Amino acid sequence: MASGEWFAQLYQESYRSLVLTAYALLRDIGEAEEITQEAFAVAYGRRARVAKADSPEAWVRTVVVNLARRRWRRRAMLDRILRQEGDEEPAPFGEHLDLHAAIRALGHEYQAAVVLHYLADLPVDEVASILDIPVGTVKSRLSRARTALAQRLHTEEMDHA
Rank of each mutant, 00 (worst) to 15 (best):
A2M: 08
G4L: 14
E5I: 08
E5Q: 11
F7Q: 06
Y11L: 15
Y11G: 00
Y11E: 06
S14H: 15
S14P: 01
Y15D: 03
Y15K: 09
R16H: 02
S17P: 01
L18F: 01
L18T: 04
V19M: 02
V19L: 01
T21S: 14
A22F: 05
A22Q: 07
Y23G: 00
A24Q: 04
I29R: 15
G30M: 09
G30E: 09
G30C: 11
E31G: 04
E34M: 05
E34F: 00
E34C: 05
I35W: 09
Q37I: 14
A39K: 06
F40Y: 10
V42R: 14
A43C: 04
A43H: 05
G45Y: 07
R46C: 03
R47P: 05
R47D: 07
A48R: 11
A48T: 04
R49E: 11
A51D: 14
A53C: 05
A53N: 01
D54P: 10
S55Y: 04
S55F: 03
S55D: 14
P56Y: 09
W59K: 07
R61C: 13
R61Y: 13
R61A: 15
T62Q: 10
V64F: 05
V64C: 10
V65A: 06
L67Y: 01
L67W: 02
A68Q: 02
R69I: 12
R69V: 03
R70Y: 11
R70K: 13
R70Q: 14
W72I: 08
R73G: 03
R73H: 14
R74L: 05
R75Y: 15
A76W: 12
M77T: 09
L78F: 03
D79E: 12
R80Y: 08
I81V: 02
L82W: 09
R83I: 07
Q84D: 08
Q84L: 15
E85L: 13
G86Y: 03
G86D: 09
D87K: 11
D87L: 13
E89S: 02
P90C: 04
P92D: 05
F93I: 12
G94R: 04
G94L: 07
G94I: 09
G94T: 07
L97R: 15
L97D: 10
L97N: 06
L99A: 13
L99I: 11
A102L: 01
A102E: 09
R104V: 00
A105I: 04
L106E: 08
L106C: 07
H108E: 07
E109M: 02
Y110E: 04
V114P: 04
L116M: 12
L119T: 06
L119Y: 04
D121H: 14
L122C: 01
L122W: 08
L122E: 10
V124H: 00
A128P: 06
I130W: 10
D132G: 14
D132E: 15
I133L: 10
I133Q: 11
P134R: 13
P134K: 14
P134L: 11
V135S: 03
T137P: 06
V138I: 12
V138Q: 00
S143Y: 14
R144F: 07
R144C: 02
T147K: 13
A148V: 12
L149K: 06
A150W: 13
A150N: 14
Q151H: 12
R152L: 07
L153E: 06
E157A: 15
D159N: 10
D159I: 12
H160V: 02
A161P: 01
A161Y: 09
